[in-house]
Design a protein around this nucleic acid. Structure first.
Lengths: 230, 230
DNA sequence: TTGTAAAGTGTCATAATCACACAAGTATAG
DNA sequence: CTATACTTGTGTGATTATGACACTTTACAA
């Protein structure tokens, strides 16, 4: 076809912001680049879009190649489009953020990419506009976690209330009152309390809970709104 | 430079969702295509990204070319990226939505493009995935209007309370109680009440108000949150 | 002057939010 | 075996926000 001949074609990068949570800290998985430009600097994991592949699929592929994970939370964030953002050639970056259970990812793969986890509060300088991208991803995560049950994506399937609370505190960068927090979570009616305790923290041990997708859908159908306010 | 030689370059479309408001109705400005493919069908106004121009600038240019307007609310919405969304060639579309005062746009220009306004509830079938794009834009507008004072972009500088209310009702697709609505708006402390009345509707006439950007910033600084709930 | 159409105004009951402190359970150390 | 240390788990009441609700005012037109 020649219909669109007169127009420019652009390089389209797909970059992934990969969130994890461990030890009260919200974390990001970054790679140390072993290729030009900016070889040796830290950056988001990325790749280039292919003609025969959707960007959603490209993001999945890139995430898979670094973490070994598929079928995890992955959502488009924003298209960064400044003309000079990549010094080599005009490139736009369509970014995707992902929420993973940090225990699930393939450490072998991430070693191969010289990847490592950084606390969100202690990010190194990243290449190009990647620091700006991370900021926007964090903003989006705050919004998303407030209005949708995506926090559980960052936890193991079984988790304790104190863990859940400290996750939300990390996301929102606030402290919360534990009684009010539990009251709100309980009122959502979307968790199942198990008869097991996790004993690693403290001496008393804390009961484990599971998120129940069906209960969540049921609650939303009956007009209940998911919301966790900072 | 040859660093990125092995990668594909893609066509990048920039499409604009242009919202207006008139007579209690939220409206969209669409064009009847006079070019292939899908000549004669309705579509969003769009164009292609250029190598030497940011997408933000491209969106501005496209909006300007249809409406004559510059410096109006314009924000990136989403990058639509299905492989087969354009039958001619693989094209991704980075979309931008705009909120304009419908009285301000250049009718001459829109005539030249065979453009016309449609009520959001009575949209024709659009080309490609443009109906899906419109849905997403409306969702975003709902969110944005709830949390930021963007509604005023859709009104003339001076407007009445009933006009403002019917704007929000159109955006949220709900009805609101006018006493509670006015109470909430008043409590935001961001409007200036003028000593003029608009007499076109009804016989009594309604007082005119203006949005005050400075007051808004002041309110936000003092911890007041903008919010208009559906 | 009277009718009409839309604008403008206040109260109260209910629900949501927020601040706040002590007891319970258990592993470990003495 | 007893005491200690550490973290979990639980309830109430005051304050604030929300939502339902109906009549009066204004000014134009007949």
């Amino acid at each position: 076809m020649t219909l669109y001949n007169e127009y420019d074609r652009l390089l389209v990068a797909v970059d992934c912001i990969i969130f994890g949570f461990h030890g009260d800290q919200l974390k990001l998985l970054l790679i140390k680049r072993d290729f030009e430009p900016e070889k040796g600097k830290w950056s988001l994991m990325g790749g280039f879009a292919k003609k025969s592949e959707s960007l959603d699929d490209a993001a999945s592929r890139i995430l898979m190649s670094l973490t070994g994970l598929q079928e995890v939370f992955l959502e488009q964030l924003y298209c960064f489009n400044q003309v000079d953002r990549d010094p080599v050639e005009r490139t736009i970056s369509v970014t995707y953020y992902s929420l993973i259970n940090i225990e699930d990812h393939d450490e072998e793969l991430s070693k191969q990419h010289d990847a490592s986890w950084f606390d969100l509060g202690e990010m190194p300088d990243l290449i190009f506009d990647h620091n700006e991208i991370v900021d926007r991803a964090h903003q989006r995560l705050k919004y998303k976690a407030e209005h949708y049950p995506v926090g559980f994506e960052l936890l193991p399937p079984k988790f304790t209330m104190p863990e859940l609370q400290s996750l939300y505190e990390a996301i929102f960068e606030t402290e919360m009152d534990k009684r009010n927090f539990i009251k709100r979570i309980d009122s959502l009616g979307i968790l199942v309390k198990l008869n097991e305790k996790k004993r690693t923290t403290g001496k008393k041990g804390a009961f484990l809970y599971q998120f129940d997708e069906d209960k969540y859908k049921q609650q939303m159908k009956t007009g209940n709104k998911f919301q966790i306010k900072p």
